[in-house]
Write a protein that binds this DNA or RNA. Structure first.
Lengths: 233, 233
DNA sequence: CTTTTTAGACTGAACATTCAGTCAACTCTC
DNA sequence: GAGAGTTGACTGAATGTTCAGTCTAAAAAG
């Protein structure tokens, strides 16, 4: 066991039965995601991710047979953790409206996200890559369906509870997810007129309007219990 | 004057005072856009665009000092022609509602577009590139503002004419453009559940709802006077 | 009107670099 | 000592860019 690996084990809380191999893999996946965010998917070199964790490039190939596999798995990893994180967050909220709010916030407010380095920039590379790389395309398809189903079932339970009006849940999920995607582009690209808060409020107005519940900004959400928003890129 | 260039002059209708140099440039820009659509921005080689018009790679560099400049200008060219095409289309329509419909159609329905090879895939590469390439970023910013202003002024004139309700035009333009962008992603990536027609109708419902005008599908638009939609990719 | 010059368009071949992937050896740990 | 983990050195292919010219058409000179 290398010093670096032992160090990593010591640092992380949830370790247990994960072998050193699995640890290394995850370490590399995280590093890969960081590099992708910084340099972009196509310009990510295996030397970069190796350097980031202080190992030889050859070792990256030892774990992932090819560069393509590394990047593909990194994307998958990112999507999975993002999704799991989302589910965890929603689970703890009482009302459907609150869950909608959280969901929209997840997609709009860059609240110095913790573990998963899911910058919005990742999305852009992700989409561009999905256009030609079938492997990535299938990851995206699955991920998108998951996301839409999350919205759909959220709407349905809200309707059953009498919180929401009777719109078509499937249509709404397509519309909301598209709206959020489009806003995410602007946020990622730091558009002058579409800042995160505006995107958030705009999305919430749309949701509240469509689903027929009351919502007004400032209810703790933006500028509330969250860490201060990071500046610059 | 080369045979190829002479040929090009003969082939095009609107030539006039465009020197052979300008012709060549445009020819290369078009070729570049085609290659970008096929292979993706980062995988576009100057050899590809050279081969496509039967010239030497060196000539491409002769016109555009670097590969980066070629690609950047290609993007700019694409955006400009798309915008001009849009303006032309809208200008000929009588009512504001019809113009909104056309605008949404431009963004959703892949109607075997004519001159500008503006596939939706281009958008994705465009965004991804804008994230790190400042030159591309400024092109996108300008292009996006233009697009939003197009919507805004369209809404304003519609309101003055009494066609539309009194929503905030700026907010609406942000929302609609984001919605269209998000749907464009799904269309470009050929999502199973978000086909162009559904995206079109969904967007129109949103617009009609927000702007307060009547709209129902099937009024000539999808499957109407347009060329049949192309299949596959 | 003919010859010479010039300038722009264009090319083939080389150059230089970057990088993914290979390999043989070395080093831990069990 | 066996096998997983790890590395430095290397290679081979791809590809952007340079360069030294060639070719052609028009301008200038005679």
């Amino acid at each position: 066991m290398t010093d670096q690996v032992r160090e990593a084990v010591g640092a992380r809380g949830t370790v247990e039965a994960q072998g050193t191999a699995d640890l290394r893999r995850e370490q590399m996946l995280r590093a890969a995601l960081e590099v992708i965010c910084e340099r972009g998917y196509p310009d990510t070199r295996i030397a970069d991710v190796a350097e980031r964790i202080g190992i030889s490039p050859a070792l990256v190939i030892y774990y992932f047979k090819t560069k393509d596999q590394l990047l593909t798995e990194a994307i998958r990893y990112s999507e999975d953790t993002w999704y799991e994180d989302g589910q965890r967050r929603l689970a703890s909220l009482p009302t459907a409206a609150a869950r909608v709010e959280e969901l929209v916030a997840m997609s709009c407010l860059p609240e110095a996200d913790p573990e998963p380095h899911s910058s919005w920039l990742l999305w852009l590379d992700f989409w561009a890559q999905a256009a030609r790389n079938p492997e990535v395309a299938s990851v995206r398809q699955k991920s998108d369906e998951r996301w839409r189903e999350m919205i759909t079932s959220l709407v349905l339970t809200g309707q059953e509870a009498g919180e929401f009006a009777g719109v078509d849940a499937a249509d709404f999920s397509v519309a909301l997810s598209a709206l959020l995607d489009g806003l995410a582009v602007q946020i990622a690209l730091e558009d002058r007129v579409v800042d995160p808060v505006r995107a958030f409020e705009l999305s919430m107005h749309f949701a509240a309007n469509q689903l027929g519940f009351e919502w007004s900004p400032g209810r703790g959400r933006p500028g509330g219990n969250r860490k201060p928003r990071q500046k610059g890129r």
